[in-house]
Design a protein around this nucleic acid. Structure first.
Length: 887
RNA sequence: GGGGACGUAGCUCAAUUGGGAGAGCACCUGCUUUGCAAGCAGGGGGUUGUCGGUUCGAGCCCGAUCGUCUCCA
């Protein structure tokens, strides 16, 4: 048993020392020290970010999955945004924080959990906190916990408080409100600082001992194996040990606040005017650094959106303090420096994290600028109508369509001496929330039929590396979310679980296999394969006969598609290698999708990949293919693989034993996918496109093997078709031919235009001569042949130019429909002669409608035989209007 | 997953009720001038993202689709 050297009382424990001491202490209690889980859990659809230390052990708490150990201790990176409004305001709120935890899976229980917590907190070899500064809470009727605290620890009764299910149950209010599943009472430990400051909760011990089934009463059933889940806030406890009032004053956060202060050219004071803003920036920047390190870029979906929000809020705090340029990215080096002792890997992505943050800041500045125009219009309207506040509906509109965060609008409006109609804003917000759909509610920890199967049958034996077919036994059938004994309805979807399977379940970007499962009496077509807690789930539909539980079957993967997937997957590794060669080491994988001879690869890179670079990348990939180097796979310890320099993804969780895929001496990656034996089998790899997917992330789409060839053929086919149509059999002549045709077309259009004008000019004189004199004005009503609407306008223009006071109405038959156009010279318009009024009357005659401006109007109709009548009617209207205007 | 907005010249944007597709900047030519955003005159540049519908007529209205931005979960 190892203990840290006894510290002198006056020495203050550093945060890094606290983290280490905690893990060491629980190692001394035979807990296995596990690394922090990733911040963005891959296999947990119920959360966007890891919210607590126990998250990575959910399955163990449910009794699913094999265990190498029954006691564990961790320091877990966590991210929560529920209380984001309090960040920087209160002493203890963060979005990103670390949680120290110790866990028991059916091993030790309340007695040990309580005793050890007390020992760690008060023993002078560990934290050495004064016992009289600590109080605890327990759940109302948890006599067991209260007894241990009072009788065994010796805590006086007046320092043990009983709290209800809202405070001291996990999940909160679970007994009465649910959800169903694993739950239990908890006991919290509070520290009371000297000097009478507010007490702070530093440790929560959760005793998960029940399974909730339905509503009360009698809905809490004891679990056969009881668990312990405890969480101690690292930053809070460090603040206690360091005797400071706020988490933001501890040794790993205070320097960051000061750094932010320097960047904003103001000095950071805890109680200063800018203190709150700086703490927020510090917190959000820290959260974003970790998340982006793991590959989450700011975006508009899910966790990406949360990161965008955090980043924008951080930036906005600075913006409102007068910092109008990107600055949050400048905080990153100090953050990485502060956090690199426990998380040295942060250094490797520093540059990329900075680039990504900077890009997002610039992006947001653009958004602000765009919205500013709209905002100014709102201000103008409000001021001109003598209002003191901006309408809430409009402000919300600015928020939801232009990303103008309320704080920003608020501050800008205040500069103009305006407030915001908050009632209207809230109303619009509520409406938007209902419009965009109700939230999905999911159980925190409830086991489904798959989990039951996993418990009773264990994991599916995985045979995908060995081949594409195997004998197997049906151990589970699930239809409509329930286990069934057999399936016999052809075409209905069904999930099949086998004792062993050659099907590869979707993972690591590689799609699930498709194929068929056959028994002597039925057949199921498998359309997709997924993984669930060690089970391989074959998702398909019954195509014939029936299939029963315990049937012997042959599982057969579609070998042609599998071969295409192997080509695409090996090509993905070649592409990764080529990207490093051409763009640099920073161009690391951020995600991928590997399908049948088709692949999508996302990677870090700040700018668009130039066409030249793309060619180089494609060349390198195909060189490696033509070299035909062997591909080998080996299992080894994660530590050894990392020593060998195998490429791993940040934000990806790896088991202790990993599979390493090597190609020649140039590529070595941690990968569980199915690969070729030799790179030459890829055949051919063609890059199809390169695009931007998120800030700092580019995507390359490529095809391999048969699809690469298909694609080339298709494009060639298109070229041939175009060449035939253009009568230019030589492909290289095509661009010239197209240019030539375009110019010809342009010249012809211009010529036609000139001819039209000339011919119009020629007939205008005649039309003027035929004009009818009405008072001082002339009225011209004529039918034209073989003209279009454009030409009608040309006539009207020329007639108006060459005549003084004139009212014109022209009619023509265009494509079997009537087209009418009326025009009136300006002086007549002033006298009340309106083209629009005339044409509406005329249009009625030909069974149509129309309108326009007083000086020019257009109309149409259907009855071409009545054009002359329409013109007559128009002439009458004109005459009437002119007469009225003259009087 | 869902809601909202936008898409017009190389760029930034305008176009009243559905009625002639425009401005500024940039570009080209000519003249003037040769010192810090030069001036003047002239000119080129458009399938209004794409497809369909309504209408005599659609940049504008309706539907679909693609793309961009944005909000909610």
């Amino acid at each position: 048993m190892t203990k840290p050297e006894k510290r002198l009382r006056c020495e203050i424990m550093k945060t890094n020392e606290l983290r280490e001491a905690y893990l060491k202490f629980f190692e001394s209690k035979n807990c296995v020290r596990r690394p922090s889980d990733v911040l963005v859990p891959q296999d947990d659809p119920t959360v966007l970010f890891t919210p607590a230390g126990m998250n990575q052990f959910k399955n163990q708490f449910l009794g699913i999955g094999q265990l190498d150990f029954t006691r564990a201790t961790t320091c877990q990176k966590c991210l929560r945004t529920g209380d984001i409004g309090n960040v920087g305001v209160t002493a203890y709120h963060h979005t990103f924080f670390e949680m120290l935890g110790n866990f028991s899976f059916g091993d030790y229980f309340k007695r040990e959990a309580i005793h050890w917590a007390w020992e760690f907190l008060t023993d002078s070899n560990w934290l050495g906190l004064k016992p009289e500064r600590l109080t605890v809470t327990v759940y109302l009727d948890d006599e067991e916990a209260a007894g241990i605290w009072h009788n065994e620890i010796g805590l006086p009764l007046d320092r043990i408080t009983r709290e209800d299910e809202r405070e001291n149950f996990w999940p909160a209010e679970a007994p009465s409100k649910g959800p169903d599943g694993v739950c239990g009472p908890c006991s919290e430990i509070y520290y009371h600082p000297p000097g009478g400051g507010k007490e702070v909760e530093i440790w929560n011990l959760v005793f998960t001992q029940f399974n909730r089934v339905g509503d009360p009463p009698d809905n809490l059933r004891p679990l056969p194996k009881k668990n312990i889940d405890t969480g101690m806030g690292l930053e809070r406890t460090a603040a206690v040990l360091q005797g400071v009032e706020s988490n933001y004053e501890i040794d790993i956060l205070r320097p960051l606040c000061e750094n932010v202060g320097e960047i904003l050219e103001t000095s950071y004071q805890f109680d200063g005017k800018t203190g709150r803003a700086i703490r927020r920036i510090t917190d959000h920047a820290r959260a974003c650094t970790f998340a982006i390190h793991e590959g989450v870029s700011p975006g508009s979906k899910e966790e990406s959106y949360i990161i965008r929000l955090l980043l924008r809020r951080a930036f906005l705090e600075g913006y409102l303090l007068g910092q109008k340029q990107p600055f949050v990215y400048q905080v990153v080096p100090a953050i990485v420096d502060m956090m690199s002792q426990p998380y040295p890997e942060l250094k490797q992505t520093l540059a990329n994290v900075q680039d990504t943050i900077r890009a997002e800041e610039e992006n947001f500045l653009g958004t602000i600028e765009r919205g500013l125009g709209k905002f100014e219009k709102l201000v103008e309207v409000a001021k001109s109508s003598n209002r003191k506040s901006l309408p809430g509906k409009e402000v919300f509109d600015l928020h939801q369509t232009d990303g103008f965060i309320l704080d920003l609008t608020f501050s800008l409006a205040a500069d103009q001496g305006l407030s915001i109609d908050m009632e209207g804003f809230r109303a619009a917000e509520t409406k938007h929330k209902t419009d965009s759909g109700k939230g999905i509610s999911w159980g925190v920890m409830a086991a489904g039929p798959l989990d039951e199967l996993q418990k009773s049958q264990g994991e599916t034996k995985f045979l995908a590396y060995e081949g594409v077919t195997s004998e197997a036994v049906v151990v589970g059938l699930i239809q409509n979310g329930e286990t069934v004994e057999s399936v016999n309805h052809v075409d209905l979807p069904v999930d099949v679980i086998l004792n062993q399977s050659p099907f590869y379940a979707e993972s690591g970007g590689q799609v699930g296999d498709v194929g068929v499962i056959r028994s002597s009496r039925g057949e199921i077509e498998i359309l997709d394969t997924q993984k669930h807690a060690g089970l391989i789930v074959h998702r398909g539909r019954l195509t014939s006969g029936e299939v029963h539980l315990n049937d012997s079957v042959t599982a057969e993967v579609d070998a042609v598609k599998r071969a295409g997937i192997r080509r695409a997957h090996s090509a993905t590794h070649l592409l990764h290698h080529a990207l490093h060669q051409v763009l640099g080491e920073h161009a690391t994988q951020r995600g991928s999708k590997v399908e049948d001879d088709h692949l999508r690869f996302d990677f870090s890179h700040g700018a668009a990949v130039s066409p030249d670079e793309l060619l180089k990348i494609e060349d390198i990939v195909n060189e490696r293919i033509s070299e035909g180097v062997p591909v080998s796979t080996n299992f080894m310890d994660l530590k050894d693989a990392k020593k060998l320099g195998a490429m791993a993804l940040f934000g990806e969780k790896y088991p202790d034993r990993v599979r390493v895929v090597e190609m020649g001496d140039f590529s070595r990656e941690l990968c569980g996918g199915t690969h070729l034996d030799n790179t030459g089998q890829v055949g051919l790899c063609r890059i199809e496109s390169e695009e931007n997917v998120a800030a700092g992330v580019r995507r390359i789409v490529a095809s391999t093997g048969k699809k690469a060839i298909e694609r080339i053929r298709n494009q060639e086919g298109l070229l041939k078709e175009v060449a035939t149509q253009l009568k230019t059999p030589q492909f290289q002549e095509l661009p010239r031919k197209v240019t030539q045709l375009q110019e010809e077309l342009k010249t012809l259009k211009q010529q036609l235009d000139q001819f039209t004008k000339a011919s119009v000019a020629g007939s205008v004189d005649d039309m003027l001569k035929n004009a009818e004199q009405v008072g001082d004005a002339r009225v011209i009503c004529e039918t034209l042949q073989g003209v279009d609407r454009e030409t009608l306008r040309e006539y009207a223009d020329q007639l108006r130019k060459q005549s003084g006071s004139v009212a014109i109405l022209l009619g023509a038959d265009i494509d079997g429909k009537v087209a009418l156009l009326a025009a009136v010279s300006k002086d007549l318009v002033k006298k009340g002669v309106k083209a629009g009024d005339c044409i509406r009357e005329a249009a009625k005659v030909v069974g149509g409608g129309g309108g326009g401006r007083p000086d020019l109007a257009e109309a149409g109709g259907k009855d071409t035989t009545k054009i002359v009548d329409a013109l007559e009617r128009g002439k009458a209207v004109y005459s009437e209007m002119i007469a009225k205007g003259a009087s």
